[in-house]
Simulated assay, not measured.
Amino acid sequence: MTDLNAGVATGCPDPLNDGSVEEELAVLMRDLNRMMRAAVDRRLEPLGLSQAQWRPLLVLHRAGQPLTQIELARQLDIEAPTLVRLLDRLERKQWIERRPIAGDRRIRHIVLTASACELIRTILPLVRAVRDEAFADLNADQRLACLRALQQVRDRLRG
C-alpha cells in the first residue's frame, strides 16, 4: 500500500495520499499508462519513431474517421499550440494532411496519408506484442473482469 508519510521529506504531505485502495488504483493506472507507452517506445525505436509521432497516428487510425485538431489535442491530452508543431512535423513526413472543413475555414480535419497507413500496418503488430506481453499473466476471466471494472470507472467519470 501507499506510504502514508510520502511527501513528508519534502515538507509537503499529500492529503490525497491516504493509503486507500482507491489511491493505489489511481496511482497504478497512471503508472501502467506511462509504462505501456514507454514499452511501445522501446519497441518502435528501431523504426525511428518517438511517442510524439506514433501516438497521434494511432489515435487517428483508431478514430476511424478524420478528427479536428481540437479533437486530436483532447485525445492526446496536449495543448493546441503543442499539437500544431507536432502536426507540422507529421505533415513534413507526409503522414498526415490537414483538410479544410466545408463552411468553416478555421477548422481542419486531420487525415492519415497512404504512407501513414502503411507505417501503421508495421506499428500495430509491435503494439499488440507489447499489450500481449503486459497481460500474459492474466487469464481471460481476469482480463474481462479488469476491463469491466475500468469501464465502470470511466463511465462514472464521464458522468
Score class of each variant (00 low, 15 high):
T2V: 14
T2C: 03
N5L: 11
A6I: 05
A6H: 06
V8P: 02
V8I: 04
A9T: 00
T10W: 01
T10K: 06
T10G: 00
G11E: 03
P13Q: 11
P13I: 13
D14I: 14
D14A: 11
N17I: 10
D18G: 00
D18F: 00
D18M: 03
D18I: 02
S20N: 01
S20G: 02
V21Q: 04
V21F: 00
V21Y: 02
E22L: 02
E23A: 00
E24D: 11
E24I: 00
A26M: 02
V27R: 10
V27P: 01
L28D: 09
M29L: 06
R30I: 08
D31M: 13
L32A: 13
N33V: 09
N33Q: 11
M35S: 15
M36N: 14
R37A: 15
R37C: 14
A39E: 13
A39I: 07
D41V: 07
L44K: 04
L44H: 07
L44V: 05
L44Y: 00
P46M: 02
L47W: 04
G48M: 07
S50C: 01
Q51R: 10
Q53N: 03
Q53M: 07
W54I: 06
W54P: 03
R55Y: 08
R55G: 04
L58D: 08
L58K: 09
V59N: 11
L60M: 14
H61C: 06
H61P: 02
G64L: 04
Q65A: 06
Q65G: 06
P66L: 05
L67K: 12
T68E: 12
A73L: 05
Q75K: 14
Q75G: 06
Q75F: 07
L76S: 07
L76V: 09
D77F: 01
I78Q: 02
I78E: 05
E79V: 03
P81T: 08
P81Q: 12
P81Y: 07
T82R: 11
L83P: 04
V84A: 15
R85L: 05
R85D: 10
L86E: 01
D88Y: 04
D88L: 12
L90Y: 03
E91N: 10
E91Y: 02
K93M: 03
K93Y: 02
W95L: 08
I96K: 00
E97W: 08
E97R: 07
R98D: 11
R98K: 14
G103N: 00
R105T: 05
H109E: 13
H109V: 09
I110P: 05
I110M: 12
A114T: 13
A116M: 08
A116E: 11
C117S: 11
E118K: 10
L119W: 04
L119R: 05
R121L: 07
R121A: 13
I123C: 01
P125H: 11
L126S: 06
V127C: 10
V127Y: 09
R128Q: 08
V130R: 07
V130H: 10
D132C: 05
E133S: 13
A134K: 13
A134S: 14
A134M: 15
F135C: 10
F135S: 12
F135Y: 14
F135L: 15
A136Y: 13
D137A: 15
L138F: 14
D141G: 07
A145E: 14
C146D: 12
C146L: 14
R148G: 06
R148I: 15
L150C: 04
L150T: 01
Q152Y: 08
V153D: 03
V153A: 02
V153F: 00
D155E: 10
L157P: 00
R158D: 14
R158N: 14
R158A: 15
